[in-house]
C-alpha cells in the first residue's frame, strides 16, 4: 500500500533523508519512530507529495506520488503535527470544503460531517470559527477532515501531542478501527508506549536512515534484544542512546 525505494532529500547542506526504503502492506498500522530531526516529517512530506524527493520513488495505493501527485492525493489524507487550518471558516464549513475538494457527494458530506463532529465532541463548536479553537480542537477537526473522504492511507505526524487523555484514547481506538476495516495508517510518533501498544509494524529512523523495520519481534531480532525487551529498550539499543545515558549520568550528578 505504501512503497518507498531509496528516498533521498537534501535541504541546502543538510541531508535530511538518506535513502529511505519502506514497504507497508494494506491494513497495517505502521509506527514511524525516531529522535528529533531524524527525517520523519520529511519522509511523510515526500510520501504525501508536499516535498519532492531528490532521488528514489514513492508509491501510495499503487499510484506514483511524484508522477501523478493529484491522483495519489485523492487516495490519502494527512494530519500534520501542528495543523494550521483556515481560521475564518467554522468547523462545519471546513469539513464541507474538504468534502467538496475530494468530490464527496453533498448529502454524504453533511451526514459524515455530523457523525465526525459528534465523534470528536465538536458538535457545539461546529459553527464557531476555527481561529477560536484550542490546539486540541484544531487537531481533532483536522483529523475529522482527514477521515471525511475515507482515505485508503492516512498519514499522521505526532497525532496525540497536545490532546487530553480522552481524545488521545479516542484517536487510538479510531485508528485501530480504521485498520480493522482495511485502511492503512502511517503514524510518526515520539511516544514509544503508544507505538508498541498500537502498531502492527514499526520503522525506526535515525539521521535520515532506516535502522530497522518490521513487527516487534523483527525489531528485537534486528537489535539482538531479549524477548522481554520493550520497544524502548530496542529503540535505545538501535539508536545508540549515548545521549540518553549522558543525560541520566548528568542528573545523577
Amino acid at each position: 500500500m505504501i512503497r518507498a525505494v531509496g528516498l533521498k532529500k537534501r535541504f541546502g547542506s543538510k541531508e535530511a533523508v538518506r535513502g529511505v526504503s519502506l514497504d507497508v502492506p494494506r491494513g497495517t498500522l505502521y509506527g514511524f519512530l525516531g529522535p528529533n530531526g531524524a527525517g520523519k516529517t520529511t519522509t511523510i512530506k515526500m510520501l504525501t507529495g508536499l516535498v519532492r524527493p531528490d532521488a528514489g520513488t514513492a508509491e501510495v495505493a499503487g499510484v506514483d506520488v511524484v508522477r501523478q501527485p493529484v491522483e495519489a492525493k485523492r487516495r490519502i489524507a494527512l494530519v500534520p503535527d501542528e495543523p494550521v487550518l483556515f481560521d475564518k471558516l467554522t468547523g462545519r464549513e471546513f469539513l464541507r470544503f474538504v468534502g467538496r475538494v475530494y468530490g464527496v457527494p453533498e448529502a454524504d458530506v453533511r451526514r459524515r460531517s455530523e457523525e465526525l463532529l459528534e465523534m470528536f465532541d465538536l458538535v457545539g463548536a461546529g459553527n464557531d470559527l476555527i481561529g477560536g479553537y484550542s490546539h486540541g480542537m484544531q487537531q481533532k477537526i483536522a483529523l475529522a477532515a482527514a477521515l471525511l473522504h475515507e482515505p485508503e492511507v492516512l498519514f499522521l505526524d505526532e497525532p496525540t501531542v497536545g490532546l487530553d487523555p480522552a481524545s488521545a484514547r479516542l484517536i487510538k481506538d479510531l485508528l485501530r478501527r480504521l485498520v480493522g476495516r482495511g485502511g492503512t495508517v502511517f503514524m510518526a510518533t515520539h511516544i514509544l508506549e503508544i507505538a508498541q501498544a498500537l502498531c502492527d509494524e514499526i520503522g525506526i529512523i535515525q539521521a535520515g536512515t532506516i535502522l530497522a523495520s518490521g513487527t516487534m519481534d523483527d525489531l528485537r531480532a534486528q537489535a539482538h534484544a531479549a524477548e522481554d525487551n520493550t520497544l524502548e529498550d530496542v529503540f535505545l539499543l538501535l539508536t545508540g542512546s549515548s545521549q540518553e545515558q549522558d543525560i541520566a549520568a548528568y542528573l545523577r550528578g
Binding site: L50, V70, L78, V84
Partner: peptide
C-alpha cells in the same frame, strides 16, 4: 495570504 494554512491546498487533490 493563506499563510501556513496553504499546505491544505498542496495536500489536497487540486490541480
Amino acid at each position: 495570504g493563506e499563510g501556513k494554512a496553504f499546505w491544505l491546498y498542496l495536500a489536497s487533490p487540486i490541480g
